[in-house]
Amino acid sequence: MPKERILVVEDERDILELITYNLNREGYTVHGIASGEEALRAIPDFKPNLVVLDWMLPGMDGLEVCKFIKQNGKTAEVSVIILTAKDAEADIVTGLEIGADDYLTKPFSPRVLLARIKALLRRNRKTQADSDAVLNVDAMVIHPGKREVRVDDRRIKLTNMEFRILHFLASHQGWVYTRSQIVSAARGEDYAVTDRSVDAIIVGLRKKLGPEAHYIETVRGVGYRFKE
Rank of each mutant, 00 (worst) to 15 (best):
V222T: 10
L135E: 09
R41F: 09
L23I: 12
G27E: 03
T29F: 02
A186K: 00
R116N: 12
P58H: 00
P110F: 11
V93W: 01
R196M: 11
L121H: 07
A119R: 04
P44H: 11
Q71V: 12
Y103I: 04
T75F: 08
E148Q: 15
L121E: 04
L83C: 01
I117T: 15
R13V: 11
F226I: 00
R123L: 06
L121D: 03
I69Y: 01
K208E: 15
V222S: 12
R225F: 00
D87V: 03
K47W: 02
L96T: 03
S35Y: 07
Y28V: 12
A186H: 04
S197F: 00
V52L: 03
D153N: 00
S109E: 01
Y28M: 10
W55K: 02
R125Y: 06
E38A: 12
V198K: 01
D195N: 15
Q71M: 13
I165W: 12
L96W: 03
A213V: 03
H167D: 14
T105F: 04
A185T: 06
P44T: 07
I43Y: 04
V203S: 04
T75K: 01
W175P: 05
L158S: 06
E212T: 05
S109V: 04
R122L: 07
M1C: 09
A185V: 10
A90F: 08
I201E: 06
L158I: 08
L205D: 04
T194Q: 09
I92V: 11
Y21W: 11
A213T: 03
E189N: 08
Q128A: 13
V65N: 10
S171W: 13
K118M: 06
R111M: 05
E26T: 09
T159W: 05
M161H: 05
K86E: 14
D91E: 14
Y177Q: 04
H172N: 10
I69P: 00
F108P: 01
D199V: 09
I19Y: 02
L23E: 02
M161F: 08
I43M: 08
G223K: 07
